[in-house]
């Protein structure tokens, strides 16, 4: 059914945006390392960090460093003005909102927190949706607040693909549940099935 929808619209997905909060590090460990080196998407992630973590930038480096060691794809922190490449995983820097410009490059902003969060998932998702339209996949994972719901809705309205981690498999189920309440979710997937689903999807597209 889904694949028919894609074929009919002749979509080619270009980017995957992921929003994740409490319990995120563990969840991402089950997803990111399973993408192949030449995965044809740009993967852009907002991971909320606690206040304590934000104090030192070294923790930021830890997150990126860890995934650099364990992922096949290139992993880096998004830089203001940088052109977005495929087969690359980008993390939003701590304490800044990350946005995507229409020409598929990053910009940063120090506007006040949105949903008590900076970076905010909604801010990333909404700007990504304006840029990539129906070529975007949005994914909400474990978390303790409702950031990301509005953004996911926006992706749905632009005919992008919307995914949510099955709350039963989430460390903290508030964020996936909040996203589901918007009734704009295409697929609800158990944590361990997310990576295979996305790999299959991109494989299908190629074929």
């Amino acid at each position: 059914m889904l694949l028919m929808k894609i074929a009919a619209l002749n979509n080619t997905y270009k980017a995957l945006v992921i929003g994740v909060s409490a319990g995120g590090f563990q969840a991402l460990k089950h997803i990111l390392p399973r993408f192949p080196k030449n995965f044809p998407l740009s993967v852009i992630i907002v991971q909320h960090r606690g206040e304590a973590v934000q104090e030192t930038s070294s923790k930021d480096d830890f997150l990126i460093h860890h995934f650099q060691q364990h992922c096949q794809m290139t992993v880096k922190e998004a830089i203001s003005g940088e052109k977005i490449c495929k087969s690359t995983i980008y993390f939003a820097p701590a304490k800044y909102h990350l946005l995507i410009e229409k020409e598929e490059s990053f910009s940063l902003s120090l506007e006040p927190p949105v949903n008590f969060s900076i970076p905010s998932i909604d801010v990333l998702f909404e700007s990504a949706s304006a840029c990539y339209k129906n070529c975007l996949i949005g994914l909400i994972l474990t978390g303790a607040n409702s950031d990301g719901s509005m953004g996911l809705r926006e992706i749905h309205l632009n005919n992008g693909l919307t995914l949510v981690q099955n709350p039963a498999t989430a460390d903290v189920d508030v964020m996936p549940k909040a996203a589901m309440e918007s009734h704009t979710v295409d697929y609800i997937l158990p944590l361990l099935e997310i990576a295979p689903f996305l790999c299959d999807l991109m494989q299908e597209e190629k074929g």
Partner: peptide
């Protein structure tokens, strides 16, 4: 101006 953040503001 970077349009995405300007649009937001």
């Amino acid at each position: 101006y970077a349009q995405a953040s300007l649009t937001r503001r």
